[in-house]
């Protein structure tokens, strides 16, 4: 029973982080139809910025919640900047060309950023501090759930809510939905397409940054390669849930998190990474549009 609970909790935690990354993928895909391969690297950069910020700011005397919030702010701001820049350099010039050119460009950007961080910092694993302060009221159950995990769930839930509010009730959210449905019509209605696309990248990157920060606190170590694997899996989760659908991305991420956790616990941890893809193939065969994808009717 305790094992089951453990697996459930670790599944929920991982799933939450995947969700944060998956949202970036699904939003960008919904708007420009591009698989943003470099998104995983933004997540990784968020983690590294968080690490550097925590080292610098803790030397400057910050601690506890203040430190956590400042570090998060730094990571979010910087990842947003990176996301914005990547879009301007690697994707914007290719808007309108075939599907494959932006894909290759994205992959190139991903390779570039991985090596960029590796060269500037270190090819090895770096220890990440535990930034989430201990929550007193959790002491009695601290062997099951710790503060970091709880914080991850709450932070993710909060961010999801904020994002939903943004998409549903703000002008930007409306513009984003319009552009994802019919870019030409949106442009004719006065929507500034460039700004909407940039905003999408910025928001997605900010979410990924939080994910990077949280994974650092949870796993206690990061390296330049974490973006690649997490990115692929998060993208798989987004496809699983139906690419382009925001609730789908969250659902897919949670399903993936649980599946990985239970597979690692009950089958074997060697094949943990394969779970994502096996799950994907199985689900797409049954439902080609993903879990929440619209039925694939094409106007003929």
């Amino acid at each position: 029973m305790e094992l089951f609970l453990d697996l459930l909790i670790s599944g929920l935690t991982k799933g939450s982080i995947y969700a944060l990354i998956a949202l970036g993928y699904t939003m960008v895909y919904g708007i420009v139809g591009l698989i943003n391969f470099a998104h995983g690297e933004i997540y990784m950069i968020g983690a590294f910025i968080a690490l550097i910020a925590s080292l610098a700011l803790s030397q400057a005397g910050l601690a506890g919640w203040g430190l956590l919030v400042s570090v998060a702010a730094a990571a979010v701001v910087y990842s947003a900047m990176y996301g914005w820049t990547v879009e301007k350099i690697a994707y914007k010039p290719l808007r309108g060309s075939s599907r494959l050119s932006p894909l290759i460009s994205a992959i190139g950007m991903s390779i570039f950023l991985q090596n960029y961080v590796q060269l500037l910092q270190s090819p090895n694993f770096l220890t990440f501090p535990s930034l989430v302060p201990e929550l007193g009221f959790l002491a009695p159950v601290s062997h099951i759930v710790n503060s970091t995990q709880l914080f991850i769930w709450l932070a993710t839930a909060l961010i999801m809510t904020a994002l939903t509010v943004l998409i549903k009730f703000t002008r930007l959210g409306l513009s984003m939905r319009a552009v994802s449905q019919d870019p030409d019509m949106a442009r004719l209605s006065g929507v500034n397409i460039d700004r909407v696309i940039s905003s999408t990248f910025v928001i997605g990157s900010a979410l990924a940054a939080v994910g990077g920060l949280l994974i650092g606190c949870y796993m206690r170590q990061i390296d330049f390669y974490i973006g690649f694997l997490a990115g692929m899996k998060a993208f798989t989760a987004a496809v699983l849930g139906g690419i382009g659908s925001i609730p789908g991305a969250v659902l897919g991420a949670l399903v993936l998190g649980f599946a990985e956790s239970f597979a690692a616990g009950f089958i074997s941890s060697d094949y943990e990474d394969a779970v994502a893809f096996v799950l994907l193939i199985v689900i797409l065969i049954a439902r080609p549009g993903g879990l929440m994808g619209a039925a694939q009717t094409q106007k003929v």
Binding site: I89, A90, P93, L94, S101, P102, I104, S105, I107, G108, M109, S110, I111, F112, L113, Q114, N115, Y116, L119
Partner: peptide, 15 residues
């Protein structure tokens, strides 16, 4: 810097 340049080159070629 090999892989770094390689990645940059890919982006450049596509652009």
């Amino acid at each position: 810097y090999r892989m770094l340049l390689f990645g940059a080159l890919m982006v450049l070629m596509m652009v």
